[in-house]
Design a binder for these strands. Sequence first.
RNA 1: UCCCUGAUAGCUCAAUCGGUAGAGCGAGCGGCUGUUAACCGCUAGGUCCUAGGUUCGAGCCCUAGUCAGGGAGCCA
Length: 463
Amino acid sequence: MTRSKVVQILKTVSPGTEVDLRGWVRTKRESKQDFAFLEVNDGSCMANVQVVVDASVPDYATSIKQIHTGASVAIIGEVKESPGKGQRVEVHARSLKVLGTADPQTYPLQKKGHSFEFLREKAHLRPRTNTFGAIARVRNALCASIHHFFQELGFLYVQTPIITTSDCEGAGQVFQVTTLDLAKLQTFKGPVNYEHDFFGKKAGLTVSGQLEGEIFATAVGDVYTFGPTFRAENSNTTRHLAEFWMVEPEMPFYELEDNMDLAEAFVRKVVKDVMENCAEDLAFFNERIEPTLLASLQNIVEHDFIRLTYTEAVDILEKSGQKFEYPISWGKDLQSEHERFLTEQHFKQPVILTDYPREIKSFYMRCNEDGKTVRAMDVLVPRIGEIIGGSQREERHAVLIDRMKECNLNPEDYWWYLELRQYGTVPHSGFGLGLERTVQLVTGMTNIRDCIPFPRTPKNADF
RNA sequence: UCCCUGAUAGCUCAAUCGGUAGAGCGAGCGGCUGUUAACCGCUAGGUCCUAGGUUCGAGCCCUAGUCAGGGAGCCA
């Protein structure tokens, strides 16, 4: 007999069937009249299956005494319709084997809820909780949906390097990668000679696969990357991680409008997929974490995103009569409070902002004819803020060089990037979507550290 | 990195004016029960984050530090 997962037992297995059930006990309700209820979970779904164990089971008394919250068990029994409330079926055990005990004096997880702060210190056990099991399932469904979306459109999944020696890539502090002995290095004075380092030059962890993505986009057509990204910023917020996952599509012959169309279709599709495939988990989040979750996701799926330029947004903010901590004026970047006002109060919808001032955006974004703005786009969503940042890329060789100098970058460092414009250049566009921020969006979880299995943040890289 | 707040039982928190450390949950034991965040009773459980300082006396006041949470910046 093969193992039946809890999700199968609860949803599809018909009464009368004998099943082999294995999992972890969430709670035990014991009766002195020689029977007990076990709630068994195996992570296959949110719900537990109730197992009824009575004295007819061999070694009943010894086994039951060994079982506490967290113990692992193997059960063979018959699925029966449940007379109790709260479940269609239950399993009546014929045999019960305790695979591993969990000493209740020391096992950190209890039947009742724990704070997320506490669970972050127990990253090796938190997937066993309802919330983190659900997050794991939703994150998985999201990743699957992301791949499906691009694969169905014929995009190629391209793997860009994690270790990179291009010192540039625009913003973001880089984690250095080296085999040099730092302890020895400390005793020498003078500049470090990277010729002796592993790669013969200074290397670091990637902050974005975009530039390499452009290489393939201008060769094989539509591509996307999907992988870990690293930022050594000392950011201590609910929206930043030092290691996070990013999806970065890059499309030749796309102009900014095409880019927006794709980004919007993408977000709406993955949200829709998760709502369909993780309905039970999302219902849990809606009930326990964020009561407006399902309504806000439905809103994303059903309505077009609002599109407006940075200039129009500034105008709305200035005329709003709203008091902001940081007053807005043209040329300044939007603060979190401004983004929140637009998405949560003014439009109550996701918003795509375009054509930002060139001074506050990266060198690779295409300059507009007005000389003041660039073809940038940010997708802003309620609660989270920026979930996507993208742009039409500057494909004109001379303009790009000028922009690099304007941004105090040395064009020589970008020689291969510039050659993409020198030989067969084409208009092209792309964007980056933060996976963990999307997990925040679809679960309602407020802290991004709970949206990745093992969060890496300043002063924290355990597990 | 900056601002604010916090750190007390395994967990979540309380402790009035500076005067003998409290509750709920969890755990152990007992009772009851087709139960389901079960319920009822009893019991155990504390270096009050660390290091200094003020004071007759500090969980509480002061200084420094560590860590955490929220907000800001950077951004995805």
